[in-house]
Computed example of a mutant assay.
Amino acid sequence: MKKILLLVLLSNFAFAQKYTLKVNIKGFENIKGKLYFQVLDAKEKIVKQSAETIDNKQVMIEIKDLSVGKYAVKIFQDENNNTKLDTGLFGIPKEPWGLSNNVKATFGPPKFSDMLFELKANKEISIILH
Results as ranks from 00 to 15, higher is better:
M1P: 15
M1H: 10
M1I: 11
I4C: 12
L7P: 02
L10T: 11
L10S: 14
K18M: 03
Y19I: 02
L21C: 10
N24K: 15
N24A: 09
N30S: 15
I31G: 01
K34D: 10
F37C: 00
Q38N: 01
D41Q: 03
A42V: 06
A42I: 10
K43I: 04
E44F: 07
E44R: 13
K45D: 10
V47F: 07
V47A: 04
Q49H: 13
Q49S: 15
S50M: 02
A51G: 11
E52T: 13
K57S: 08
K57F: 03
V59M: 02
I61L: 14
L66G: 00
Y71K: 09
V73I: 13
I75W: 07
I75Y: 09
I75N: 10
I75V: 15
Q77E: 13
D78G: 03
D78T: 00
D78Y: 12
N80I: 03
N82I: 09
K84M: 14
K84D: 05
T87P: 00
F90T: 05
F90E: 07
P93Y: 08
L99W: 00
S100I: 04
N101F: 00
N101R: 01
N102W: 01
G108W: 09
P110V: 09
P110Y: 05
D114K: 14
F117S: 13
L119C: 07
N122S: 08
K123F: 07
E124Y: 06
S126N: 11
I127E: 09
I127T: 05
I128W: 05
